[in-house]
Design a protein around this nucleic acid. Structure first.
Length: 421
RNA sequence: GGAGAGAUGUCCGAGUGGUUUAAGGAGCACGCCUGGAAAGCGUGUGGGUGUUAACGCGCCUCCUGGGUUCGAAUCCCAGUCUCUCCGCCA
């Protein structure tokens, strides 16, 4: 959420941001409601002041045994009027909030303006492997090696679900443990959050109200399956006043993620590139405002480190405004090369949300004793998403013999084996 | 799922309709006192929001949201969370 004061004073910047992000907002409605709200409050508070004084007076008179019926009758009217104005104000505020919750964060100036085609390739790492044969896609490798069972995933759940079996399941477990250990070594605290969260939590990080259709909802209990660990982990500190000396908070969480992928039907349908349920290791940071840009760079480096240790070629892109998510001010995408499918696959998005999520969640800290409370900054990034990392491992490290080489760093997690046959 | 108890400021804790504009204590900050300190004494002590150039002046805030009343921490309704017991359960 943006600060209403900021919107009031910079309406054109807000409008421009929404256009750049290709999102519709009701800016005029917001400004109008904001004005009405303040007029209403000013007037109602005058009446409340009057009422408070009169009520105290009545109390005194009653104690003294004086007649108060006239004053009470007069105040009855004032009280009724206040009630009306408070009702009106509540309605105005609810509508204002509804509209404010749909205003996206403003892109940082370093984000290129435009659509997907304006994303900037910042750098790449590693060499794409050269094959003396045509590299197979992961669904072929996975089936041949009895690691990946797509038909049975579809049978028990539907399209967009898969089953990892045998060494495939073990490989994924190994990669998860490897990632967690790396990030913990880099100073992140491991957490295991709930996978079901309430409406307030989904609103706090910005998934609601905009992405309602993209999520699985448990209607009976008004809970949602998390689309990313970002949601429960960031919201752990919703409504809290954090101690300055505790910042930055750095968390790493492994969770499954659930996404309906509404509107993405027919895209990346083969294999496990785009699925309804996948595992992910997520990094979350809660930091002081002045540190957030540096923290974004180190977050990105922490995610990149995983790909490097897994010996997977990748590129880093700066997302253009049209590709930026609702809550993000800036985002780097990490895309790993997948020779079998012949494409780069997004395995991580590292974003700085500035105080946008913090304001929604009401997460603050005191910069120094005696200073006013301030909103913290929040960041997150995948470190990394599992299926696509597994895809890249299989496709990049496949050999002519039909085996898959295990990178050095992963071997301790697989009982020391150097290949999968 | 059933029965019960509870939630008050940074903390402890009083408070069942009107000098509570939240008692009292602790903590913290500042001042006095002191050679310095302790003790003692005094003053201050949250958050949100409206208005204002600012000082300031208000309003809201006793878990949350409604309601009753001229007036609610206090009464009523709904909900959340914590604890105890019972039942069920991996």
């Amino acid at each position: 959420m943006l600060d209403i004061k900021f919107i009031r004073e910079n309406p054109e910047a807000v409008q421009t941001a929404a256009l750049q992000k290709r999102m519709e907002i009701d800016l005029d409605g917001i400004l109008r409601l904001d004005r009405r709200r303040r007029e209403n409050i000013t007037e109602a508070e005058q009446l409340k002041k009057q009422l408070n004084a009169a009520s105290a007076e009545i109390g005194k008179k009653k104690k003294a045994g004086e007649d108060t019926s006239g004053a009470i009758a007069a105040m009855k009217e004032v009280s009724a009027r206040i009630g009306e104005m408070d009702d009106a104000c509540r309605e105005i505020e609810a509508e204002l909030r509804r509209k404010m919750l749909r205003v996206p964060n403003i892109p940082d100036p370093s984000s290129p303006v435009g659509g997907e085609d304006k994303n900037i390739d910042l750098r790449s790492w590693g060499e794409k492997p050269e094959f003396t044969f045509t590299p197979a896609p992961h669904w072929e490798l996975g089936e041949k090696m009895r690691m990946l069972d797509l038909p049975r995933g579809a049978k028990v759940s539907g399209s967009g679900f898969f089953v990892l079996t045998g060494i495939g399941a073990k490989l994924q477990r190994a990669v998860i443990n490897f990632m967690l250990d790396r990030h913990v070594a880099a100073g992140y605290t491991e957490v295991r959050p709930p996978y079901l969260v309430n409406t307030a939590t989904m609103t706090g990080t910005g998934q609601l109200p905009k992405l309602e259709d993209d999520m699985y909802r448990i209607a009976n209990d008004d809970l949602y399956l998390i689309p990313t660990a970002e949601v429960p982990v960031t919201n752990m500190h919703a409504g809290e006043t954090l101690r300055a000396e505790d910042l930055p908070l750095k968390y790493v969480a492994y969770t499954p993620c659930f996404r309906r992928e509404a509107g993405a039907h027919g895209k990346d349908t083969r294999g496990m590139i785009r699925v309804h349920q996948f595992d992910k290791v997520e990094l979350v940071k809660i930091v002081r405002p002045e540190d957030s840009w540096n923290e974004l760079e180190s977050l990105l480096a922490d995610a990149e480190n995983i790909l490097q240790l897994l010996e997977l070629p990748y590129r880093v892109r700066v997302l253009a405004t049209g590709d930026l998510s609702f809550a993000a001010a800036k985002c780097y995408d990490l895309e790993v090369w997948a020779p079998g499918v012949g494409n780069y696959l997004e395995v991580s998005s590292c974003s700085n949300f500035l105080d946008f999520q913090a304001r929604r969640m009401n997460a603050r800290y005191r910069p120094a004793p005696k200073e006013k409370l301030q909103f913290v900054h929040t960041l997150n990034g995948s470190g990394l998403a599992l299926p696509r990392t597994i895809i890249a491992l299989l496709e990049n490290h496949q050999t002519k013999q039909g085996t898959v080489r295990i990178p050095e760093a992963l071997r301790p997690y697989l009982g020391g084996i150097d290949q999968i046959k």
